[in-house]
């Protein structure tokens, strides 16, 4: 008797959405099966990787990462253009880290200006992120959302402490929105409920259950993401159907393993390869757990992750 592949059938489906405007807009989500199991269901869109840039010169990126952006990182628009034109970035994630009170405390107006400059030079979808400061983000993201009106961006991250203002901005300026909670599946669901109760549609919402790097809690993120996906697919839980975001780069590039020197750690091998591998492996973990959108930093790590996605999605 011929071998029959055992298949699961799912009652739910991940929400699908388009981000960006024009020829380079991208669709994400829409699958009704677990990641890469295309024999079991439909996976209309592949996961997307956005390359991260910042509004100020990064002061905490290791040299092995920073050197790729030499001559660009002092100007967000230049940096964005470089990523799109030279590194083939399919999407850009602009992190307005300079607005954090402990960094340069840039104003919401400054942030809005940076957003406009970046949008004037790139045609790929833009993800606009705050500095992860609850109070400051509320004003920064609102101004950034207004500056990007009509560009169908993803803005975020809306958290329990500031979601009302940020959701209102996403509604007013017609953006997609990332809702973030801290490694707690029940709070992730609760935040999604609160946001949709404000009249924000599930198919405009993305969920970020908080990423973590390999060796620093990756397994917790993996479990939460996978549980979100299973609730969406097996229980048809509409509140858990938004596409998942994995904010990989920011967690990877602060670990000891990507910066400890070869002199100090000769047994760990090449420092640069180590960093790239760390980001790729973390990214793969997120993809296998169900992430639809990754935010990454190292161009070589992005390239390798894209290749793995290519191989897992072809044919």
């Amino acid at each position: 008797m011929a071998y029959v592949i055992p298949k699961e059938t799912y009652s739910g489906k991940v929400a699908s959405m388009t981000i960006g405007e024009g020829a380079k807009s991208i669709a994400i989500g829409g699958e009704n099966t677990m990641p890469f199991l295309s024999f079991e269901g439909a996976i209309p869109n592949r996961p997307v990787i956005a390359m991260e840039i910042q509004d100020i010169t990064p002061d905490d990126w290791p040299d092995n990462l920073k050197k790729y952006y030499n001559g660009y990182y002092d100007d967000a628009a230049k940096w964005a253009k470089f990523c799109v034109e030279q590194l083939n970035a399919k999407a850009i994630a602009l992190r307005l880290v300079g607005t954090h009170p402990d960094k340069q405390d840039r104003s919401a107006e400054d942030a809005a200006k940076t957003v406009k400059e970046v949008l004037s030079v790139v045609d790929v979808p833009l993800i606009i992120l705050g500095s992860n400061h609850i109070e400051k983000d509320a004003s920064v993201i609102v101004a950034a959302a207004e500056a990007a009106t009509g560009k169908n961006c993803i803005i975020g991250k809306a958290q329990e402490g500031n979601y009302k203002t940020i959701v209102a901005a996403a509604l007013a300026h017609k953006h997609k929105l990332i809702a973030m909670s801290e490694l707690d599946i029940n709070l992730a669901k609760q935040l999604n409920i609160l946001i949709t109760q404000m009249g924000f549609e599930t198919d405009r919402l993305l969920t970020d259950p908080m990423c973590s790097a390999l060796g620093y809690g990756l397994e917790y993120t993996y479990s939460v993401m996978e549980r979100i996906r299973l609730a969406a697919l097996t229980q048809n839980d509409t509140t858990m159907q938004p596409p998942i975001v994995g904010d990989v780069g920011m967690y990877v590039w602060k670990t000891k393993e990507v910066s400890a020197s070869e002199e100090d750690m000769p047994q760990w091998g090449s420092l640069e390869e180590r960093g790239i591998a760390w980001e790729v492996v973390t990214a793969m973990g997120m993809l296998l757990a169900g992430a639809n959108l990754l935010i990454m930093r190292h161009p070589k790590a992005v390239e390798k992750a894209e290749k793995v996605i290519e191989e897992l999605t072809k044919g």
């Binding site: 609760q190 999604n192 609730a231 858990m240």
Partner: peptide
């Protein structure tokens, strides 16, 4: 375990 808990589960 048929539904995932969230504080607002009764409203869903």
């Amino acid at each position: 375990g048929k539904t995932l808990y969230a504080h607002s589960y009764l409203e869903m």
